[in-house]
Computed example of a mutant assay.
Amino acid sequence: MAARVNGVHPAISRPLKAGVFAPIPSFFLPDSEDLDIPAFETHVVRIASAGVGPLIAGSMGEAIHLSHAERLVLIRAARKALDAAGLPDVPLIVGTGAASTRETLELTAEAARAGADYAIVITGGYFAGALAGNHAALKAFFTEVAEKSPIPVIIYNYPGASGGIDLDSDLITELAMECPNICGVKLTCGNVGKLTRIADAVSGSAFTSTYPRKNPIAPFLVLGGFIDFLTPSAFANGHGAITGLGNVSPYAIRKLFDLSEAARTDLSILPEAQRLQGIIARADYTIAKTSIVGTKYLLQKLYGYGGTTRKPLPPISPVAAQALWEHPHTQALVTLERQLSGKAQ
């Protein structure tokens, strides 16, 4: 890999490829709430070793609870851990969205210097009343960030974390066409029709030749924010998903992605993809309802680390935790993950 000299981020050499990605939780020590770096490094390597890409400082990573300095610590720790594990080609996607355009650009530049290969940016929701539905203002925000970012930018559309701001397919398609440093979108709005429209617009050689990316190894990817419609999205020319479920079951979601892609050219594979999609979709629905604390609880239960969130996010109650673990959707996923990871018990 090219070295970073004097804090300058070189041309990226870790391609962004279609696939499945997991927004990595930020782990905290129980008493101090300081970052638990050993747990974080262990988890990043566990996920990447299963063929799932890590995303640092996203919603699941409680980015809103992290200082700038802490984000940089996590980026450097992730890169160091991946390199030490023999995974130097795994790219790092890092959340850099903030309330203002100015701070977003500062965070993005800092992340790039620390080792981020790609930024994923959400709109700040504090002034959602003025921004929601304001096509010109939202377009100006992403255009400026993309033009000034030293690394390619992924649009993050998550109304639940941005005061209800929901980017429509027309705006996202315009940004894809007009901003060559934008390399994708994550749709945590769960709108399958929106995904279909955007994927259709950016698929094929006509888009690639007419609207080339600034960096040819950073193509425009259309990614779901949930894993429960991965197989249907593959047939609509989607490119995968960024999903919190990847933390709990990386082997299962990677297998689902591979089967779904293969089924596009060999329909005999489709029934098995559909079977896995059913198991994973039900688990995604059940586990997602418990949010970050549920995912961390399951990691603690399965792998011995996870812990809790930073205050003021409350921990999961013992009753809810037991119900989550014993739920048949969770148990079916755990069984599948153990089978695919070679750790069936």
Rank of each mutant, 00 (worst) to 15 (best):
D117P: 13
Y118K: 05
A119I: 08
A119M: 09
V121G: 04
I122Y: 09
T123Q: 11
G124T: 03
G125T: 01
G125I: 00
A128G: 14
G129D: 13
G129V: 05
L131K: 13
L131F: 15
L131E: 12
G133I: 06
G133S: 00
N134Y: 02
N134M: 04
H135K: 07
A136E: 15
A137C: 04
A137T: 04
L138T: 03
A140F: 02
A140Q: 14
F141C: 00
F142I: 05
T143H: 00
T143C: 02
E144I: 03
A146F: 01
A146I: 05
A146T: 00
E147C: 04
E147L: 03
S149C: 04
S149L: 02
S149R: 02
P150H: 05
P150K: 06
P150L: 01
P150I: 05
I151H: 01
I154D: 02
I154Y: 08
I155S: 07
N157Y: 01
N157R: 06
P159R: 03
P159H: 05
P159T: 05
G160S: 11
A161N: 14
G163D: 10
I165N: 05
L167Y: 06
D168E: 13
S169R: 11
S169F: 15
D170F: 14
D170Q: 12
L171F: 12
T173Q: 14
L175Q: 07
A176Y: 11
M177D: 07
E178I: 03
C179L: 09
N181H: 09
I182Y: 10
I182F: 09
G184T: 02
G184A: 02
V185Q: 06
V185G: 01
K186C: 14
L187V: 11
T188R: 02
G190P: 14
T196H: 10
T196P: 02
T196Q: 12
R197S: 10
A199Y: 09
D200S: 13
V202M: 13
S203C: 09
S205G: 04
T208S: 10
T210A: 15
T210Q: 13
P212Q: 12
